[in-house]
Amino acid sequence: MKVKLIEIAHGRSGDKGDAANVGIIAYDDKGYEIIKKELTVKRVKEYFEGVCLGEVVRYELPNLRALNFILHNTLGGGGTVSLKLDAQGKTLAAALLRMEIEI
C-alpha cells in the first residue's frame, strides 16, 4: 500500500551554507524501519532533481528514529546570497513528506 510519508513521519529542514539539511523523524519503530528502507539516497536525490544540484548524504539517528539528509548545492548560493524565496530550505522537509512510499 502506498501512503504519503507525512502519515508516518514528521521533520524539520534548514540551511548549512549552500546545503540544506532535511531531518525526517518516524512516529514509531515500524515507521523508522520503513523510512530507512524507502528513503534511500538515490530516491531522495531523484525526488529533489532540479532542486538539489549536488550530492545527497544520508545519516541515521536510530535513537530518535530519524534520518538526516544533507542536500548539497541546493540553496542558490546560501542564506545571504540566495535569491530564493526559501533561501534557507525551511520548506524542504515538507516537500519530502509529500513523497509517496510503500508501507
Binding site: 531531518g23 523523524i25 539517528l61 530518535l64
Partner: peptide, 26 residues
C-alpha cells in the same frame, strides 16, 4: 526531536569549541 535535527550535519560529529557531541547517543 525536530529541534535536535535542525541545521545539523553528521550527527556523530557536532563540532563546537568545547567538544564534539554525538547526537546519536541522546
Amino acid at each position: 526531536s525536530e529541534q535536535l535535527l535542525y541545521e545539523i550535519g553528521d550527527p556523530t560529529d557536532y563540532i563546537t569549541p568545547d567538544c564534539v557531541a554525538d547526537f546519536t547517543s541522546i
